Simulated scan of single mutants.
Amino acid sequence: MFGANKGAPEAGSKLLDGRKLYIGIVQARFNEDITNALADACKAELAALGVPEKHVDHVYVPGALEVPVALQAMAEQDKYDALIALGCIIRGETYHFELVANESGAGVSRIALDYQLPIANAIITTEDLPQAVARQTDKGRDAARVAVEMANLLDALA
């Protein structure tokens, strides 16, 4: 195991060593300026954690509701150590926001559990565009760290 520390892993921790990992990214195109920034931050952090660029597959889907089906297709390939979901849902004036947020989140969780595969869910949900802009870099970076940490944790628990 990796020791008794139950807090966040430190830089250089085995849990944050991505050198041997294969990562799949599914990015929603809806709110593309935000999702592109999420993806840029995510891929930069994956590189910083040692994940080779050639070990990262990045696909695009129309929106957040389509993310789970692409994640499922990637999970079925049995070649990824972790997956990352990227999207942005901004509240509008209708119930559609809740529907998309709830269904995409439930779909991502179901794929992770069904395939016992870590999925970092960075489909951000915000009230407005300024909130999305404020979150885009940190959430993209966080998704990369979650994917690497969870892939290594599940490997250690196997």
Rank of each mutant, 00 (worst) to 15 (best):
T126A: 11
N36R: 15
Q131K: 07
L153F: 15
E149Q: 15
L38D: 05
E149T: 10
E93M: 10
A134I: 10
Y115W: 02
K14I: 08
V108P: 01
E76V: 03
R135A: 14
E76T: 06
Y95E: 12
I23T: 06
F2Q: 09
L153N: 06
D57S: 07
I119P: 04
Y115I: 00
H55G: 00
G50V: 13
I89R: 04
A8W: 04
P9S: 07
I111H: 02
A132M: 11
L86F: 07
D40I: 12
P118E: 07
L86M: 06
L154F: 13
T126E: 06
I84T: 11
T137A: 08
L153R: 12
V133K: 13
D142L: 11
E127Q: 07
R110S: 12
R145C: 02
V69T: 15
E66W: 12
L21A: 08
L49T: 08
L15V: 11
V26T: 10
V148Y: 06
A82H: 04
A101C: 13
V148C: 05
R110M: 13
K79Q: 08
V67Y: 00
V146F: 08
A37Q: 14
G50K: 05
Y80M: 10
R141P: 00
F97Y: 15
V148T: 00
C88T: 10
L99A: 11
